[in-house]
């Protein structure tokens, strides 16, 4: 680890100004991903501006019934928040499906959004990786790619985004509030992340020095049920092979509206707009659920190591929709 300076932020404006002015500076939240990256040699900031003592740790009710989640709210506190649990079951479930109790006590909302891929080649500085070292190549293509992308990947990078929380936030139409030197801007989650293309070193559309201050959730539609389903290699404390988040509004035996996002399939939470379109007005049932999944997954381009993700994602989404549509009270 290279030496670095440490400075607790006194206010958001000066934190933004400090990091913007210094190319090697980074914000420090819970540190659960960044400190590990500094140990591994993936990140080498020369200044850490600690934002955890800024007054960004509240969960507030918005006038329209939505919620504003402060950037430094810890994942465990957010998952346990009574308003979040009653209004956004998909998000509480996704948070609790991620990491471990100790990590959730430290990890922040903004840090969760900004965590980086767990691609084993990205995390191993002895191997080529275009995300870590642009132009060096991609060891995952043709390598061990069981965990990698089947949608939206490029010839330069097939990494997936690891967050569970972000997948639920995508289905919930979350909006990220970002503070930069020019002031504040609001970025819908759908425009927050990038596909890898030929610049996989950039995970998001944030500029250096921009600081996430909150995430806003609009109210879910009246009568909506929502949930999250995660499939992984062990029962707990593992990243997703595949996950699905859904918001479902039904009307009689039909789907009135569905919002769906997949995790584990792409470089970003994958909002499944083709599946949503296929479900609109459909008769509730196994056939519609599977057709909807296929409407999205037919664009999949699996590799030899991860072709199982296509049927796995189809089954995960169908099971989740079945649960939301037909099971009286889901866990």
């Amino acid at each position: 680890m290279i030496p670095f300076d440490y400075a607790p932020a006194s206010d958001t404006d000066s934190a933004v100004a400090t990091v913007t002015a210094r190319p090697g500076a980074a914000f420090l939240g819970g540190g659960t991903n960044l400190v590990d990256h500094m140990k591994l040699g993936i990140a080498s900031p020369d200044l850490l501006v600690d934002v955890t003592r800024l007054p960004l740790d509240a969960v507030e009710e918005l006038p329209d019934g939505g919620l504003r989640i402060g950037a430094t709210v810890r994942n465990s506190d957010l998952a346990a928040n009574p308003l979040l649990r009653s209004r956004y079951p998909l998000l509480s479930h996704a948070l609790l499906a991620g990491a471990s109790g100790q990590l959730r006590n430290a990890a922040t909302t903004a840090g969760n959004l900004l965590q980086r891929t767990r691609c084993s080649y990205f995390q191993d500085v002895t191997t080529p990786c275009n995300k870590r070292e642009p132009g060096s190549g991609c060891a995952a293509i043709g390598g061990w790619n069981r965990y990698h992308a089947v949608l939206g990947a490029s010839e330069h990078c097939i990494a997936v985004h690891p967050s569970d929380m972000a997948v639920a936030m995508s289905a919930a139409d979350a909006v990220v509030t970002v503070l930069g030197e020019e002031g504040e801007r609001r970025v819908p989650l759908g425009e927050f992340y990038r596909l890898p293309g030929d610049t996989p070193q950039y995970d998001t559309n944030l500029a250096h020095g921009e600081l996430i201050t909150s995430v806003e959730l609009p109210p879910l539609p009246a009568g909506a049920r929502s949930g999250y389903r995660k499939v992984r290699d062990r029962a707990s404390f593992a990243f997703a092979l595949v996950s699905a988040a859904a918001v479902l509004v039904t009307d009689g035996g039909h789907v009135r509206e569905a919002r769906i996002a997949f995790g584990g399939l792409a470089h970003k939470p994958w909002r499944a707009t083709h599946a949503e379109e296929a479900l609109r007005g459909a008769v509730l049932g196994e056939e519609a659920f599977r057709l909807a999944a296929d409407a999205e997954l037919r664009y999949g381009q699996p590799l030899p190591g991860n072709a199982f993700k296509i049927p796995m994602a189809r089954n995960a989404l169908a099971a989740l929709l079945r649960e939301l549509a037909f099971v009286e009270e889901r866990r």
Partner: peptide, 17 residues
């Protein structure tokens, strides 16, 4: 604080928080 396996009925928030 809930866990992933906590049944909703045992600890879910009501709309009054």
């Amino acid at each position: 604080h809930p866990s992933l396996v906590t049944p909703v009925a045992d600890g879910d928030g009501r709309s009054d928080g």
